[in-house]
Design a protein around this nucleic acid. Structure first.
Lengths: 102, 102
DNA sequence: AAAATGTACTTTGCATGGCAAAGTGCAATC
DNA sequence: GATTGCACTTTGCCATGCAAAGTACATTTT
């Protein structure tokens, strides 16, 4: 059992809500605020704060515009975010491999 | 991308410190407080609180005794804890599989 | 045209929770 | 007998998740 693995887990990503956001953004080039909210069934407030955290970490970029007479916030992974997420998933993979019986 | 997976992540286990503890306990039948502290390089206070959380969740059993003129606290997984951890690892596996490119 | 409703967020407040510093109890050593 | 050391526990602080309430603007209703 290697304790190093757990220490390396990125706190910013290792959070249910943000992990879901990162995972969703990894699958599509960009998603609107409302897309994420509908997909992940998060409350608005919860979503904004998680997005802000990810943005401040440099993992997602946020673009605010105005379409169809409504505000439109679009999020996408930055290269750093993509890398951090890939690293995180690799760590998870090692943890799983270490803990699966077979 | 399946958002259900993330919702299902057990909050008690999905925490670096406790995940490490569960993983360590899954690998050995029992471990002493000091074993865990040395292995995981956690502070004493941090370790006690995490152990208490896991105990209150019914995931680890804690036995306090006195050996070699010193207190000895031994921890081990309960059946429920073993199951919860196995479920958690399976979830991680699915998340990894969903997010690994190939 | 004023009021109400709806959408797209943001801010605020609370309650939980991680963390380590300080504290406790006991035994051995100086 | 005072001090050191070990094995924990308690306390206090700070960060953070979360949702309720708030803001801004556009549309619909009366």
């Amino acid at each position: 059992m290697n304790p190093e693995l757990f220490l390396q887990l990125d706190r910013v990503i290792h959070e249910k809500g943000r992990l879901a956001i990162m995972s969703a953004l990894a699958a599509s080039p960009e998603l609107a605020f409302t897309d994420l909210r509908n997909l992940l069934e998060m409350t608005d407030g919860n979503l904004t704060t998680h997005i802000r955290t990810l943005q401040q970490a440099g993992y997602v970029s946020v673009a605010k515009s105005y379409r169809n007479n409504r505000p439109l916030t679009t999020c996408s992974l930055t290269p750093a975010g993509r890398k951090a997420f890939a690293d995180y998933v690799n760590l998870l993979e090692q943890i799983v491999r270490q803990n699966k019986p077979n």
